[in-house]
Design a protein around this nucleic acid. Structure first.
Lengths: 225, 225
DNA sequence: TGAGTTGTTTACATAATATATACCGTTTAA
DNA sequence: TTAAACGGTATATATTATGTAAACAACTCA
């Protein structure tokens, strides 16, 4: 995770950088608006931390420019300007969060984590999928419901993964066959039904709250109800 | 955009509710943890605003539960507990933002806006058709009128979808039969009438404003009148 | 290599549910 | 007033889903 810190006070900048690096983030510093902009054009960052009062352009204008470049990258404004008016202006410039100096580093870290988590979710670096009390470990290829481990075969696993990644959405047999079995078009088989049955036995049997639901005429939905 | 406010102080709760409604958000209040949980299971919210100190379970536990239900829905913690430790605990519970009372409403609004923007961006695969107070969720294959869920069969669903996509236009039985039943030409059957009847029972029965109207000699129109 | 094991798919009987039809009473338009 | 159009319901038919068994395939280890 790459973070760009835009801050003209060297002491503050390196304090933040060190702290972030201790938490295994990859942090860089730009001491003015112009170099920040150039860096942002050259490299791909996952988060910007901006001071408002910086040499060159204002942090707010920089924020707008960065958002123009790629509005998906979150911006956290970190500044001494703490009135509500300041904050509103910051948010209007496109900031995703606004933290007032002086601040405790732990809070900054927590907020950074939240901002990066969001970006990640859409970016698919997730190691585990969680729906209700069911957890699917994508590395270990096992599921856990409540406190009991559930072993899955390869097909069961990919079916469950597909279900969990699309929980709450009704999936037709065709959708499922396409994604899990790479089947082109309607093929005269009931593999999907059979595997749904297998999964139910392993995941839902014995539990009050069922997670696999059939929508007659539509397909299946995964999730709590 | 539907927001659930969990706050036991009636004054504070309704203050927030009014403010949000002035900005055209659809806000509801739960005065304790248990009812909040139930509401969250029944309805789809786009944001939760939680106080930590509430009757029933703690706001933090509630936050965890909500995130388990659907981690995509953002949670903003709004509380009087303002130490950094409190905040860290809040973020650890899965909160997306943490605002300390007393606060200026404008700041809350700005933060709410940011949280909803994000949710929309990443989660915009939810396709819904909306006509009047009726909503058809194309992913979940359910309709919602006012706040009550309506289950539909496959044929009912595709008929309603056709209606909603062509609301305000008079649709002849032939049009409908062609699109929903793939029927070529006039066929000696009354399926369309029967299914319109089924839909009326599920959608219009008990409501003052009917959405399905018959144009004798022409067909049907869908929409408010 | 080949017997045993496990995983995957097919086939089919049974059950659940949706859909279509037929019918009759009611409303509508001329 | 009358014929056509529509609303509503019961029932038969067709479709869709479940669960089991067995066939087939792939992989394991002596």
């Amino acid at each position: 995770m790459k973070i760009l810190i835009v801050e003209d006070e060297p002491k503050v900048a390196s304090f933040i950088k060190k702290g972030l690096e201790e938490s295994n983030y990859d942090a860089e510093i730009a001491y003015d608006g112009l170099s920040a902009e150039k860096l942002a054009q050259l490299y791909k960052y996952d988060l910007f931390i901006l001071d408002i009062v910086i040499p060159g352009i204002s942090g707010l204008d920089l924020c707008k420019k960065l958002k123009n470049l790629n509005s998906n990258v979150p911006v956290l404004i970190l500044t001494a300007l703490g009135t509500t008016d300041d904050k509103i202006i910051g948010f209007d410039a496109g900031a995703d969060d606004y933290l007032v100096k002086p601040f405790e580093f732990r809070e900054l870290l927590a907020r950074v984590k939240v901002l990066l988590k969001k970006a990640n979710q859409s970016h698919d670096t997730v190691k585990r999928l969680i729906v209700s009390d069911l957890e699917l470990d994508l590395d270990k290829k096992v599921a856990t419901r409540g406190s009991s481990h559930i072993d899955l075969t390869a097909k069961e696993f990919s079916l469950l993964e597909y279900f969990m990644r699309n929980s709450g959405r009704v999936l037709s047999r065709n959708d499922i066959a396409e994604k899990v079995w790479d089947a082109r078009f309607d093929f005269g088989t009931n593999v999907v039904d059979v595997y749904v049955n297998f999964l139910r036995k392993k995941i839902d049997k014995g539990y009050d709250k069922k997670l696999i639901h059939t929508r007659v005429g539509f397909g299946y939905v995964f999730g709590e109800f």
